[in-house]
Design a protein around this nucleic acid. Structure first.
Lengths: 163, 163
DNA sequence: TCGATACCCATCAAAACCCATTGTATCCCG
DNA sequence: CGGGATACAATGGGTTTTGATGGGTATCGA
């Protein structure tokens, strides 16, 4: 069970005064090849101070995985609670937002805050999903490979946001 | 056996003086994609001090699940009784309410009390169903992941209900 | 007739939509 | 191979639509 098309590449886009951001075209093209819904789901990343994002195709996959996990432990009473918690994190702690014909979403304020994202949003493809970072936070993060930081620094320079 | 459209996301809505609440639009859209009835069923949640809510499509699915559970245990003499009890909880201890053209229900007083819900109702999508909480009760609940509590706190702040 | 529920309408803010501009990479043709 | 014409992505701004909510009125059953 795997998805055929994968997210890859990086881009640095502006969040405008209304809170809108363009989803990079190369990510949108993957979403639209995987399915026909023009939406993404946003969630806090489990390990990094950034957001995790994916499309409905991946969300469905994730739901099936959770259900399968439950059926295996159905008898265990403690498992019931664990399942409730996983479901809450997977569904209640996420937000689904549509993007318009020009490829923009309205970045939900809550998710923006969770991801520490200001007026620049860094998109990183990671295969089945992609991530959204505050570029500066990524540069300050210890467990990120230097080669990736170089790329991000380049994107910042490119935009003239030198810092 | 799975439903195609899933409940996802969170919202905090007001219960007005008449006891009316708006069902968030993103939940209604799932209900209306699953079927054409504009109603929800309310029940006390099995594990948490909140309400569990769902649409007619899920109610049908639940019935099937209960039947399947019975078949699996049919040798056990106590199983018959357990099945009766589950059925009572699933159908007798629930209330079905329609929502109007503006998406509001009249929150039944009994369910409001069962869920400990005052003048703010927190809606949490959990995939096949959704939950309705008193936001303050959720914050005080030990078994809820901190990340989710952060989100609820944010929703409260957003509304200016600081506490 | 009283109490409660279902309807109807108004309002305000937020979200979705449409259109215009710009910069850049691509393509075509001389 | 160079110059300009094109196409598309990203972005800014204004306008329309929708969602949440408050309040009034009609309606139905006890």
């Amino acid at each position: 069970m795997a998805l055929e098309h994968l997210f890859q590449g990086s881009a640095l886009n502006a969040v405008d005064a209304k809170g809108r951001v363009s989803i990079p075209a190369f990510l949108r093209s993957v979403i639209e090849r995987r399915g026909d819904a023009r939406m993404i789901t946003l969630a806090k990343h489990e390990n990094f101070p950034c957001l995790s994002a994916y499309d409905p195709a991946y969300a469905a996959l994730k739901h099936v995985k959770l259900e399968r996990l439950l059926e295996k432990e159905e008898t265990d009473p403690a498992a019931q609670l664990a399942h409730q918690q996983r479901n809450l994190m997977a569904f209640a702690a996420t937000e689904e937002v549509p993007y318009d014909s020009s490829g923009r979403i309205l970045f939900p304020l809550m998710m923006r805050r969770k991801g520490g994202i200001g007026d620049l949003a860094l998109f990183l493809g990671t295969g089945e999903t992609f991530q959204i970072w505050n570029p500066q936070v990524l540069l300050d993060q210890p467990d990120i490979p230097d080669d990736l930081k170089d790329i991000v620094q380049f994107r910042l320079d490119e935009r003239g946001a030198g810092a």
